[in-house]
């Protein structure tokens, strides 16, 4: 219970303990704690960032899918249009070709008919002349009634 030099001994040891704590004990522990705090904060931020990025990626994927669908629809529509066009074209061409052939055939037929008619006409004229000649051999000269014969031939 006496106050004596122990007091100074205690003061000195207390001072040394405090100094040691301040120099060697406190800083590394607090440093580790602060580092961990920073690390955790960083981790949380990274997680948040990751989530955000995922959301963005999902959105992007959706957009891409939608665009692809649209494109596919467009391509399909184009193809259908094209196909219709080709069919139409083919039909038109066929029609035209058919028309052309028809015309050609008609012309040929006409020509043939004309030819036949011509041949027939000259034959008839000949026959008429021949007949008339035979009839008129006795009565008329062919040369003198030529214009009559011609008009008969033309009326055929």
């Amino acid at each position: 219970m006496n106050i004596n030099v122990t007091l100074f001994g205690q003061m000195l040891s207390f001072a040394v303990f405090v100094w040691f704590t301040m120099k060697y004990v406190w800083p590394p522990i607090v440093k580790a704690m602060d580092e961990r705090k920073a690390k955790i904060a960083e981790g949380l931020a990274a997680a948040e960032r990751g989530q955000h990025e995922q959301e963005l990626a999902e959105k992007r994927a959706k957009e891409t899918l939608l665009a692809a669908k649209q494109q596919a629809a467009e391509i399909k529509a184009n193809a259908e249009k094209h196909a219709t066009m080709i069919v139409d074209e083919a039909r038109d061409k066929a029609k035209e070709e058919g028309g052309r052939q028809l015309t050609a055939a008609r012309a040929e037929i006409e020509q043939e008919a004309n030819k036949a008619r011509e041949a027939l006409r000259s034959k008839v004229a000949e026959l008429a002349v021949l007949g008339a000649e035979r009839i008129l051999r006795k009565e008329i000269d062919a040369g003198a009634h030529r214009d009559i014969l011609d008009s008969v031939a033309n009326q055929i």
Binding site: M1, I3, T6, L7, Q10, M11, S13, F14
Partner: peptide, 14 residues
């Protein structure tokens, strides 16, 4: 040690 006033006064005086 804390029942010795030397110890407690040592700290409080510092």
């Amino acid at each position: 040690p804390t029942t010795d006033p030397n110890a407690t006064f040592g700290m409080s005086l510092m």
